[in-house]
Amino acid sequence: MKHLKRAYLALMIVFMYAPIIVLMVFSFNRSKSRANWGGFTLGWYSELFKDPKILSALYTTLSVAVLSALIAAVLGTAAAVGIDSMKSRGRRIMMTVTNIPVVNPDIVMGVSLMLLYIFLFNAFSFLRLQLGYATLLLAHVSFNVPYVILSVLPKLRRMDDHLFEAALDLGAPPFKSFYKVILPEIMPGVVTGAMLAFTMSVDDFVVSFFTTGAGVENLSVLIYSMARRGINPKINALSTLMFAFVLILLYLINRSDTSKQRKGERELNEADY
């Protein structure tokens, strides 16, 4: 039975990794075709760094992710503090609004933002604005803020209500009280939220697709535009590098986590026989 279970898990893992391995293998393929093996090469890896289009897409992806995560962290943390202090009705309304981008289909969010941008461009036509980096960034902030709020709120709820009041009582002005007392307490939530926001942003295609333009492309949009003609192995090479990077990072985090967890479990086991 145990062997059967192992075999099943192994099969599923093969299923999950097959496309990824294919993709990685083709990043070393001399031939540009996605079907034929033309011999081993590292050429795509070196050429990757000479391709301005790919490099600029990588730059757009990362800068939008970092900026939108940071803006979302600030905006979302402030919002969470405000929502936490609200009465039940106001809080309910704000939570509903917060949940809209989470539940709403990406594609609807994408087209609705596109309509908004076009509407504003027409209203302020003298400014000659168009879709591009700014609209992309604003869109990413919009779908990122809720994740920060949803990560920070539980931390706030677990915090002692009187901490803030005590700081005020001791003479600290509100902003300083927040900075010195509340922020350190909720920091783990802010960091989690910002990291979640960063990954959501890197991973996004749909919203970016509808809200960017004028030649500004992030990796997802670039890949989509290539998909019909066939994806350049340079993209495979880049993805392999990024994946390996994330993998190593995750492995390090996970290892420190599990060693802590193992220790905890052992203590628990020894607690009572």
């Binding site: 496309p19 990954t199 991973d203 990796l219 890949i223 989509y224 993805s239 994946f243």
Partner: peptide
């Protein structure tokens, strides 16, 4: 953690 589009595209191969 691998780009969603690329993973899907890989299925073509």
């Amino acid at each position: 953690w691998m780009n969603f589009l690329l993973r899907t595209y890989s299925w073509l191969a």
